[in-house]
């Protein structure tokens, strides 16, 4: 079960705005997704060590060294830029 409170909290954390009808709808939809995933709880996992990755793999590293990237291309998609910086709207209002 996902409560409407959960949905409101999640919406705030995700910076999304929903009206009352949407909140109710998402509570229902998310609830059924969670219920579906709950099917996994039926699997016996007592003998399985918790894992942080989908496949058994560890220790993938790179050596410390600089490889320059053409950084100008990264600013192409910036909605707004000023000088060489990404420009963002006011962060905190008074």
């Amino acid at each position: 079960m996902i409560s409407t409170e959960d949905v409101r909290h999640l919406a705030t954390l995700s910076r999304l705005r929903f009206n009352e009808a949407e909140v109710a709808q998402y509570a229902k939809d998310l609830g059924s997704i969670f219920d579906y995933a709950k099917a996994l709880n039926e699997l016996p996992t007592d003998d399985i060590a918790p894992s942080a990755h989908a496949i058994p793999i560890e220790n993938v590293f790179r050596e410390d060294g600089v490889v320059p990237f053409d950084a100008d291309t990264l600013l192409i998609n910036a909605p707004e830029q000023e000088g060489h910086a990404f420009k963002v709207p006011q962060i905190l209002a008074d």
Partner: peptide, 19 residues
């Protein structure tokens, strides 16, 4: 972040991001 239009975040009109 470099806040513009003020010396602190509260009065700023916008901010510049350097990554």
């Amino acid at each position: 972040l470099v806040h513009q239009g003020s010396d602190n975040i509260k009065g700023a009109t916008h901010s510049l991001v350097d990554l």
